[in-house]
């Protein structure tokens, strides 16, 4: 138990360091970005008709003339006090913008995470168990095809086929256009989430399929499976007794590591479907020079991805007897 506490503590420190570096890197990149928030958010003609006094005020609001280091330090100081600042574009606290956007995105991401993990695992096993046969070639072909297809392209294709041509799904947003927010039903929301979620799942599946297939083949080529065959175990028994058991561990790592990919994919997918989630918010913040929001989202996403990997580590220690028992002795 004590060892676990030390392990947790070490990882906590590691996470803090990671977040520190992520925020510094993000901040440096934003500072180097050529985007002038005034030009980006106020039209050229409006900017021309403003008085110098008004422009000074706006420059102060967007923090154009502040020294980057001081801005960063001020942000860190506030962040440590639990204040992520105020979004310059949304004019709300960053925390509440993130909460709102995250709840939209979470539906997509959790759906895609479970679906791509489940289907990917299943197809990977099927493919690996039937190596070289038609079904393996089909699954592998599908996985390689979707792995090489850019997410945004796939999203556009789906939008074109299912929303425009077939009219099965709405073409964008997370709620029906022009409807009172109070009267939006859950089924409305689901209908708007299905297509982006499916797109996100499909790109996630290929990775899991290919990795699982590879692991399955490794297991089948192992000496313990050879011995199982020599002892008269049949294919299905070998899978049940040895296959599943031995690919489950790498699958756990893979599933939790895929959180980062789902996060990355969601940015592109939300953009194409105009889905008001975290991915779209981060693009808006980046292009509009909304530094507090951008840093907030970056740090929160890094923390979620880190947490995913951390959970995988902990689960590994619980599931794998070599680590579990090894740590005790």
């Amino acid at each position: 138990m004590n060892k676990l506490m030390v392990y947790m503590f070490k990882n906590f420190i590691r996470m803090l360091l990671l977040l520190l570096f992520v925020s510094i890197t993000a901040f440096i990149l934003v500072s180097l970005s050529p985007i002038d928030p005034l030009q980006a958010n106020i039209s050229q003609t409006a900017l021309g008709s403003l008085s110098q006094e008004q422009i000074d005020k706006l420059e102060m609001y967007w923090g154009v003339n502040e020294a980057p280091i001081e801005r960063y330090l001020a942000w860190v100081r506030a962040f440590l006090h639990g204040d992520m600042g105020t979004s310059l574009l949304y004019r709300q606290s960053v925390a509440s913008v993130i909460m709102q956007k995250l709840s939209n995105s979470l539906m997509l991401m959790v759906f895609a995470w479970i679906i791509s993990g489940g289907i990917g695992f299943f197809l990977g096993i099927l493919s690996g168990m039937n190596r070289g046969k038609i079904i393996d070639k089909l699954i592998k072909g599908y996985a390689l095809l979707t792995a090489s297809a850019p997410t945004f392209w796939l999203a556009l294709l789906f939008l074109l086929v299912f929303s425009v041509w077939l009219g099965l799904f709405p073409i964008g947003l997370s709620v029906p256009i022009g409807m009172d927010a109070a009267s939006v039903s859950l089924s409305d929301r689901l209908q708007h989430a299905i297509l982006p979620a499916v797109t996100l799942s499909i790109t996630g599946i290929s990775n899991i399929v290919l990795h699982t297939r590879e692991k399955m083949i490794d297991v089948l080529e192992s000496e313990y499976v050879l011995f199982a065959v020599a002892r008269g175990e049949k294919r299905w028994e070998i899978f049940r007794h040895h296959g599943l058991r031995n690919i489950l561990l790498p699958a756990i790592t893979l599933q939790f590591a895929s959180i980062s990919e789902i996060f990355g994919g969601s940015i592109l997918v939300e953009q194409v479907f105009s889905y008001p989630g975290l991915g779209q918010a981060v693009v808006t913040a980046g292009l509009g020079g909304d530094i507090p929001l951008l840093l907030g989202i970056t740090v929160i996403s890094a923390a979620i991805v880190f947490a995913g990997n951390f959970i995988a580590d902990i689960l590994y220690g619980i599931v794998d007897p070599r680590i579990r028992k090894g740590a005790r002795s």
């Binding site: 313990y224 011995f227 199982a228 020599a230 007794h241 058991r245 031995n246 794998d320 070599r322």
Partner: peptide
């Protein structure tokens, strides 16, 4: 007909 394998690597490491 049974085989007695060479080494412990012929046993499933997780069973």
């Amino acid at each position: 007909i049974v085989l007695v394998p060479q080494s412990v690597s012929y046993l499933d490491p997780l069973m």
